[in-house]
Design a protein around this nucleic acid. Structure first.
Lengths: 175, 175, 175, 175
DNA sequence: GATGAATGAGGCTTCATTCAT
DNA sequence: TATGAATGAAGCCTCATTCAT
């Protein structure tokens, strides 16, 4: 599975190649299919396992009514901690097999939902402006995914991410 | 070329298949290669031709200091007018061959640049808040591309686009 | 036909390409097949026409009991005068279609036969050593064809040819 | 590899066909490419392996100052022992891919060099006439290759070879 | 469990030849 | 007579998957 992970990071989902995975794992090509019935199940398994692990990392920090800023930071830290995986998803999520794509999206909802609640809290507290939190989050997730998907076009996430976050917060906060 | 266009819309760049294009065009498979030396040149040709045509449509509306709202609307109208193409690009732009991707991005700069200038003008005129226009545009383009790339997740562009635009403008405008 | 000649010189018989010939002739691809029923008839026609023309050039010089030296020189001059054609034949004669190959060989016999007779005369006159003229001519033709077939391995025919001729004559002449 | 060898013998390098090789080997077409990355590497591998094996067979007999006659005989025996391969090379060597052709020629040098030295020794010993050994060897190799390349034109190598050898030696030896 | 050779369908490309215009 | 788009068979190569050992 580590070899498959590396293959996904290096070549993405579409171009991932079972022979290369086997080589990377130091086993014969056929051996891959003893452990996973098909290429798809192998790759999907990795994607889900990693997606869920990432989500699980995040969950403990979602309780206790964190501020939006804290959640944005959490999001950036987590992406940065799994950068190759995050990049692969940013690039290929839209063209992943429908079932896998749906499951990945589901796994990500807790963070998005926590952000939505944080926004609502901020608005109730008069710290954030009025407006639709879902739309706002579209801006955030869209910008972050775009940043990840084009690593040659933008500064690295560690640099550009905080700038995005500050810009985002400035727009949302009451002046 | 129309068959190739349809193939790109239906299957995307990576999965576009010369045999299916030939069938779609009602010719033999080999015939495709009389008109285009390779699959890549055919697909890239379509992508660039359509990308440039779209860009050209937009250019006349960029002169005369249009407002940001006008430009956002223009953007949405143009995407909606070429929805299958826009969706394909939103989905696959990050994994397109580097050369093609670069050319597509170049073709799109005039609109982005006009938006940037419109923001600057709005800021000078005291109608828009202070802040980095590039960051703001990251939010806009990110959200729009995300919307296009996941057509099953969001309402159609014609519905969701204006909502995005209004949300975006509300954030930028001085309260 | 000139275009086909050029194509044969540039690419050889096997790799000669009817589309390139048409382009070279400034006509449409299909037009080639108005004048020649098949690629093979076109190429074979060229090869035979040129082979016969070359042979015809040589024939007048075969009468009048020329010396072997004169004939060797004639051979070298004629090859040099049609170097691209001679090179193509040296390279590809063994793999030409059987019928064409046979005809090319027939066309060449007068020169070989004249050489054989010159050798016999030289032997009768006591100027050349005893031995089988056919074997000797195998050496000559073999060496010359080898020289032509590997232009990058040997000095040009104009340089190496005379050396070969002198070496050959020295071996044959009575000491 | 045996199937490829047979294919080379039957159809030559240019016309060798990977599908026919697969059939000959009793495997599926795709299987060929498990063992050899490309057609070219397969064919080149065969040619080099066989060329080197042939050369290696000869090498032990090159030491100990053999006579020219012994070397010519060795040459003929070795060609006869690998007749289909020798014929293929005689026919196609000039049109082989440049890199392969160069390697084949290199592999053959030891024999040619041994012949050259044998000639020099023969000349020193007063048994062979004065003259350029390289030119003489052009006659020998040229005649032998011509004989091999046109199997339908000449008696078989086993018959004609010794005659060529005797004719060659007679010309070189001091009368 | 592991191997790795084998499968076979599918992909792109070439090119001599045909034929409606 | 000329055109040139079209044909279609053939060629090389890839890769997920199977299976006898």
């Amino acid at each position: 599975m580590d070899a498959a992970r590396a293959e996904l990071a290096d070549h993405g989902y579409r171009e991932a190649n079972t022979a290369r995975i086997a080589t990377g794992a130091g086993v014969a090509h056929g051996t891959v299919f003893l452990h996973f019935p098909t290429r798809e199940e192998l790759l999907d398994g990795i994607v889900m396992a990693d997606g869920q692990a990432d989500a699980a990392e995040v969950v403990p920090h979602l309780s206790g009514s964190p501020t939006l800023r804290a959640l944005l930071d959490l999001h950036l830290r987590q992406l940065d901690a799994h950068l190759p995986f995050a990049r692969m998803l940013a690039r290929e999520l839209p063209s992943l097999p429908a079932a896998l794509r749906a499951r990945v999206l589901v796994v990500r909802t807790p963070l998005a939902e926590a952000m939505r609640l944080a926004i609502l809290r901020g608005q109730s507290a008069g710290q954030l402006r009025a407006g639709d939190p879902t739309t706002w989050l579209s801006f955030w997730f869209g910008a972050v995914e775009r940043l990840l998907a084009h690593p040659d076009l933008f500064p690295p996430l560690a640099v550009r991410g905080p700038a995005l976050r500050d810009g985002f917060l400035t727009l949302l906060e009451c002046p």
